[in-house]
């Protein structure tokens, strides 16, 4: 018998059912100011270091904040001030071949370091911007969307 903390037990139960309820990543750094995260259901919460990230979340930094995150496929993203980044699609089931990672940079700055999804399936990773879509074959780039 394993005595797991309840959140871990829930994660284990959901993943056993194949549901997509596990977080896809976590906020790792937040400096200089504040950021909010809007979920798919339009609820908003303040971003915090260690906070969970889910599919559909939109991260918005204020004009002083920058924020870094990692996803479970080892993708690393960081955003600068006055930025809006949405994590639109995420599928990471290598054993089943289900791989997808789609983000959208509405405005601001993003540094991107690709992870396992881009390595396993290079055409499955994209970042949309208002003027074009970046297909991420690998591995590191910066992109800015001006006003």
């Amino acid at each position: 018998m394993r005595y797991w903390p309840i959140p871990l037990l829930l994660v284990a139960l959901f993943s056993a059912q194949g549901a997509n309820a596990e977080p896809i990543g976590f906020v790792k750094t937040l400096q200089g100011g504040n950021a909010v995260i809007r979920a798919l259901d339009d609820s908003e919460r303040p971003a915090a270091i260690g906070g969970e990230l889910n599919v559909g979340d939109t991260i918005r930094t204020d004009r002083r904040a920058s924020l870094g995150l990692t996803l479970k496929d080892d993708t690393i993203m960081s955003v600068g001030p006055d930025t809006e980044l949405t994590l639109e699609e995420y599928l990471f089931e290598p054993a089943r071949g289900d791989l997808k990672l789609g983000s959208r940079l509405g405005r601001g700055t993003l540094q991107y370091v690709s992870g396992s999804i881009a390595r396993l399936q290079p055409d499955a990773v994209s970042v949309k911007t208002p003027t074009g879509t970046i297909g991420v074959r690998g591995t590191q780039f910066v992109v800015r969307v001006g006003r």
Partner: peptide
């Protein structure tokens, strides 16, 4: 100087880097 742009960076581990940008005007590879 463009207000929106992308720059491909060096990979510290020497892995190959590439992005393909698709706009209404077509595809451009970096």
């Amino acid at each position: 100087a463009p207000s929106s742009y992308i720059v491909l960076l060096d990979d510290p581990d020497g892995r190959p880097s590439q992005v393909v940008v698709t706009t209404e005007a077509g595809e451009t590879t970096l």
